[in-house]
Design a protein around this nucleic acid. Structure first.
Lengths: 249, 249
DNA sequence: TATCGAATTATTTTGGAAATTTTCTTGACG
DNA sequence: CGTCAAGAAAATTTCCAAAATAATTCGATA
C-alpha cells in the first residue's frame, strides 16, 4: 500500500515519513494520472475526506505541488488543478527535448556498465508491463515502468539539477498525455512506442550520441503531436455542442 | 513595508494576499541573502517569532521553499537551510549558462523595441543603484536591480517554463554569492561587473547573438570562479583552527 | 570510565475551531 | 429588465493545543 515513488521531498529512504509526504505523493500521482480536470477547484473538505487526513498536511502537500506548478494557488481563493493549454504543452515538450537531450548526451559520455545494465533492465520491465489501462489492480504500472525507462537513460548524467528539472517536466507531459488519452491507447500505438524505445536504447548502448539524440527528439515530438491532435479533437467536442444547446453535465 | 517582489506563487497582482505568501517572500529573501547558514536548522518557534506568524503559514512557506530546494525538509525532523557544496555551485552555474544562453538566444531573435527599452532602463537603474551593502535602509537594492537587469535581457524569450527554471537557479547562485561574499564586494569588482554588463547589453542590443552568448557565459563563469575562490578560503578558515584548538563560537 | 536504557524534555506534526475573505442570494431601485 | 447593495452562506486561511516523534538527560551497570 505504501508504494515508494521517487520524489524529491521528504522521504530520503523508503516510504513516506509523514502524512503530508504520503498525501503529496498520492495527490501528485492523481494529478499526473489525469484524475482531476484542468482548472478544477481542489476544495479542501472533499480532499480531506478523499485522502483521509486533516487540513494541515493537505495544505502542505498542495503548497509543494503549487511550487512545481501541478496546482495553482490563488491566494484566499484556494487551489485548482493546473490549467492546460496547447501552447504550454508545446513549451514543456520543447524544453524537455532540449534538457533531456542534454542529459542524454552527458549520460552517454559518462555512463558505465552499471548504467547500461539498468537501461536494459528497465527496458525489459517496460516490455513486459501490461499496456496502459490493462492492469486493474495497479492502473499506473505501465506508466511507472515507462518513467523508469526514460529515467534510466539519462541517469548517468552528472547534473543533479538538470535531472530535477527534467523530472518536473516529465510529470507535466505525463499529465497532458493522460488527460487527453484517458485510458484508450490503441494497441498499434503501444507497439510503435515500444519499437521507438528499442531503437533509442540500441543507439544509446552503442554510444551513438547523434543517433540517440535524434531518436529521443523524434520520440518526444511524436508524443507531442499525438497530444496536440487529441487536444484539437477535445476542443472541437467542447465547442460544437455549445452552439446548438447545452453540453451534458 | 509590503514590497512587491516578483514571485511565482500566490500574488498574481500586487502585494502578497496571505500571510503565507508574505512569509514565503521574506524567508526566500533571507535565504537568498545568506542570512541563514547552510545546513542551519530552521526551528519553528524562533521563525514564528521572527516573522510574527503562527505555525501554519510558516510551514506552508517552508514547504514551498523545500520544493525549489532552498530549504531541506527532513520528515519528522523539521527543516534546514539548504546545504552548499562547491560541486552543486558548479552544477547550478553550468546549468544556468546553458539555460540562460538558450533564453538569451530566443530573446534576441524575438525581442521587440519594448524589450530593448526595458533592457536599457534596467541597466540604467543598476548603474545608479548604490553598490552592494551600501544602502542601509534597503540592503538588497543593488541585488534587486541586478536581478531585474538579467531578467530583462531574457524576458523576450518565449518559453515560460525556461524562465521559471532560470529564476530558480538564479536564486541559488545569488545565495551562493552572498553566503561567500557577505557584504564585502571590492569597488574594483563592482566596476568590472558593470563593464561586463554594459558589454553584454551592447551585444544584445546589436543583436549579435554569438558575442552576447559568449559574454554571458564568461560573465557567469567569472562569477562562479569568484565564488569558488571564496569557497576554498572559507574551507581553509574552517579547517585550520580545528587542528590547533576550538574555533570561536 | 564508557555504555546502555529508561524517563524526561524538546520539537515536529496534525486535527479542529475561530477568524477572515470570498461567493452567492435576495430584494430594492432606476 | 438590469444593476447594485446588503445580508447570508460557503470556503479559505490562520491560530492553537493535543498527539506523535525525536533528542537528551541521568543513573545504573559492567
Amino acid at each position: 500500500m505504501k508504494r515508494a515513488v521517487a520524489v524529491d521531498i521528504g522521504s530520503p529512504e523508503g516510504g513516506p515519513r509523514t502524512v503530508a509526504d504520503a498525501v503529496h505523493q498520492r495527490l501528485r500521482a492523481d494529478l499526473m494520472g489525469g484524475r482531476y480536470s484542468p482548472g478544477e477547484a481542489l476544495r479542501l473538505e472533499p480532499l480531506m475526506a478523499r485522502y483521509g487526513c486533516g487540513i494541515s498536511p493537505l495544505r502542505e502537500a498542495l503548497n509543494r505541488l503549487a511550487a512545481d506548478r501541478l496546482v495553482r494557488a490563488i491566494g484566499q481563493r484556494g487551489f485548482q488543478a493546473a490549467p492546460v493549454t496547447l501552447a504550454e504543452m508545446w513549451d514543456v515538450m520543447r524544453l524537455r527535448q532540449k534538457l533531456e537531450g542534454e542529459a542524454l548526451a552527458g549520460s552517454i559520455e559518462g555512463g558505465d556498465a552499471r548504467w547500461e545494465s539498468e537501461i536494459l533492465a528497465a527496458f525489459h520491465r517496460l516490455a513486459k508491463a501490461p499496456p496502459p489501462g490493462h492492469d486493474r489492480a495497479d492502473p499506473d504500472s505501465w506508466e511507472r515502468s515507462h518513467r523508469d525507462f526514460h529515467a534510466a537513460l539519462i541517469s548517468a548524467c552528472s547534473s543533479e539539477w538538470l535531472l530535477h528539472f527534467i523530472g518536473i517536466l516529465y510529470g507535466h507531459t505525463e499529465r497532458y498525455r493522460r488527460i487527453r488519452f484517458e485510458r484508450t491507447m490503441p494497441r498499434k500505438l503501444v507497439r510503435d512506442v515500444e519499437a521507438e524505445h528499442r531503437a533509442l536504447m540500441d543507439a544509446v548502448l552503442a554510444r551513438d550520441k547523434r543517433r540517440a539524440l535524434k531518436l529521443l527528439t523524434d520520440h518526444l515530438e511524436k508524443t507531442a503531436n499525438f497530444i496536440a491532435r487529441e487536444f484539437a479533437a477535445a476542443e472541437a467536442m467542447e465547442a460544437a455542442p455549445r452552439r446548438r444547446g447545452r453540453a451534458a453535465a
